[in-house]
Computed example of a mutant assay.
Amino acid sequence: MFRYNVRGENIEVTPAIREYAEKKVGKLERYFTDVPDATAHVNLKVYSEKTAKVEVTIPLPYIVLRAEETSPDLYASIDLVVDKLERQIRKFKTKINRKSREGADIPVPTTEVEEEVNELDVVRTKRLSLKPMDSEEAVLQMNMLGHSFFIFEDSETNGTSIVYRRKDGKYGLIETN
Rank of each mutant, 00 (worst) to 15 (best):
V113G: 11
D79F: 00
F92K: 06
L80S: 14
K91F: 09
K91Q: 15
P36G: 08
E119Y: 13
E86V: 00
E116M: 14
K91Y: 11
K45S: 14
A76R: 09
R101C: 00
V122N: 07
Y20M: 01
L85T: 09
P61E: 09
V123K: 15
T57M: 15
T51F: 10
V117L: 12
R18N: 08
T70I: 14
N118T: 05
N43Q: 13
I96R: 07
D37T: 15
I17Q: 02
V117H: 11
A76Q: 12
A67R: 03
G26S: 11
L85G: 05
K23G: 00
D105N: 14
R98F: 04
Y75K: 07
T70Q: 11
T39G: 04
P59I: 08
V46I: 15
K53L: 07
E55V: 10
Y20I: 01
R124V: 14
R66S: 11
S71N: 09
P107F: 12
S48G: 14
R87H: 04
K23M: 05
S77F: 03
R101M: 12
N97M: 09
H41W: 03
E12I: 13
V13M: 03
T70S: 08
P72R: 13
R30P: 05
V42K: 05
P36W: 02
V81G: 01
K99V: 07
S77Q: 06
R87S: 05
E112S: 09
V35Y: 00
T33M: 05
I96H: 01
T110Y: 03
E69M: 09
P72W: 10
I106P: 00
A52L: 00
E29S: 11
L80T: 07
P15Y: 05
S48E: 13
I11E: 01
K50H: 15
K95I: 03
E49D: 14
H41M: 08
K24Y: 00
K93N: 10
E69C: 04
R90Q: 11
T70C: 08
I78Y: 01
V42Y: 04
L60P: 07
L120N: 09
R98S: 11
G103I: 14
E55N: 13
E112R: 09
D73Q: 10
D73R: 10
K99Q: 15
P109V: 01
L28K: 06
D73T: 09
T14S: 12
N118F: 05
T110S: 08
K27L: 06
E114W: 07
P36T: 04
V82L: 07
E115T: 13
E55S: 10
K27S: 06
A67I: 06
T39P: 02
E55Q: 11
V81Q: 02
T94K: 15
A67L: 03
L28H: 06
G26Y: 06
D37V: 12
V46Y: 01
T14I: 06
L80P: 04
N118C: 06
E68I: 03
K53M: 11
E86M: 02
V122H: 07
I106C: 10
K50V: 07
S71P: 03
P109E: 06
A40Y: 04
P36E: 12
V123I: 15
S100Q: 12
E86I: 04
T111G: 10
V82M: 03
F92M: 13
T94R: 15
V46A: 04
T57N: 13
I17E: 02
Y31K: 10
V123H: 10
T94F: 07
